[in-house]
Design a protein around this nucleic acid. Sequence first.
DNA 1: TTCATTGTTGTAGC
DNA 2: GGCTACAACAATGA
Length: 262
Amino acid sequence: MPELPDVEGFREVLARCAQGKRITGVEVHDAGVLHGVGAERLRRRLEGRRFTEPGRHGKWLLARTDGPTVLMHFGMTGQLVCCRATDDLQAHDRVVFVLGRDQLRFRDQRKLQGIWLAEDPDADVARALGDQGPDALSMDRDGFDELLSGRRGRVKSVLTDQSLIAGLGNLLADEILWRARLHPARQAGELSDDERHRLHTEMRRTLRSSVRAGRVPPRRSWLTGRRDDADPACPRCGGPLDRRRVGGRGTVWCPRCQPDTS
DNA sequence: TTCATTGTTGTAGC
DNA sequence: GGCTACAACAATGA
């Protein structure tokens, strides 16, 4: 499920596969992923353009061209893949950007999000991303303190609220809280200076490792590597992990390492 | 058939 | 109005 590290990986795929290349065709195999733009207009606006350096904000990918910018959000199951024109079309290849012999494919099983066209690469992008908080990778300690202080909501809800901080999803939030030894239902504003500092440090560490791996790595030494086990055990203390809904989301934590002090 | 999955959106309530 | 919590929705598989 694409979170910041996955989308950063897709950005690299685009940079490697498509940057500098001319768009010779746009094949829309399922217009259901298009938002606010039809297949015909998407094609007309993009054909003949070249992809330039791609950007990312939170979970959004900015596929820039020397004309409009294509905004992509991958929902739960989306991905961006680099193919040869001769590669078989997959069942869930919804939109194909043809670049001569190469192709950039927006592949998505469940069409929960999709593709937007920002005709004006400044104003339209700013409008589309206007409700997004700062990118999680750019959040420094002061900004993080400000984010959490005075908030009554649960710390997990704050971490996954894209309008407050952009890029963290369910898996990352659980992983970061586990590493920082903080219970996900703690009130954000009641964390001590030390706890906030730990959370910020672990957020950066977890993000860095995950970006390197292209995803939140499901290693056995990470919480993520255990959460699908039948009787998951904490990689750190070996105790049984707890699993319950927090803020409406499936949440996994270690009751021993992450005591609920609220 | 129902539930669970995730991120987003709309809304109710404080 | 700002903030918080929660239900609903998208599509699909178990």
